[in-house]
Design a protein around this nucleic acid. Structure first.
Length: 153
DNA sequence: GCCAACGTTGGC
DNA sequence: GCCAACGTTGGC
């Protein structure tokens, strides 16, 4: 299933994903239960992911990544110096999961949120819904293909 | 288990 | 920096 992952580019941008090479980057720090459940239960190796840059100058979808490793224990929950540290987490019992993604394609330009909202075929895309705060969101194949099509217009 | 208060997200 | 929308917390 295709996905949309949100990220602040100051944390992990499309270029950071590209710089990580074929092995990919660890997608960690997800601390919302609904998003966690998607990561833990539904994101599988090979899934394609639209990478959305949020809270930045150029808000929008910046490219496509691919899942290279499915759910494993989010290492940041064990790291005391991490902003994502969870003192309750042990290696036997923990709440948070991470995946790995590698770069497939960086778009020639960022597809802005306004453009996505202007596209009737994307009205049901979770990313464009008002008040949406999920950082891991499912998308349909039709929505995914439509976003790729928009990059060519 | 309800729900008010609070904190966070994230576009603008 | 503002503020709408949402998630979480905690008293009862």
């Amino acid at each position: 299933m295709p996905w949309v992952f949100k990220t602040e580019p100051t944390e992990c941008s499309i270029d950071d994903i590209g710089a990580a090479g074929a092995d990919g980057v660890i997608w960690e720090g997800v601390r919302n239960y609904q998003a966690r459940n998607f990561l833990r239960d539904e994101v599988v190796v090979g899934d394609l992911v639209l990478i959305h840059h949020s809270s930045c100058a150029q808000i929008g979808v910046a490219g496509v990544a691919q899942v290279t490793e499915a759910a494993f224990a989010d290492p940041s929950q064990f790291q005391q110096d991490s902003q994502y540290y969870d003192p309750k987490a042990t290696t036997d019992k923990f709440a948070w999961y991470a995946v790995k993604v590698s770069l497939v394609e960086k778009f020639a330009r960022v597809l802005t949120l306004a453009e996505l909202r202007d596209c009737p075929g994307l009205a049901e895309l979770v990313l464009v819904k008002k008040g949406n705060r999920l950082s891991i969101m499912p998308a349909t194949k039709q929505q995914f293909d439509l976003v790729l099509f928009l990059t060519k217009t």
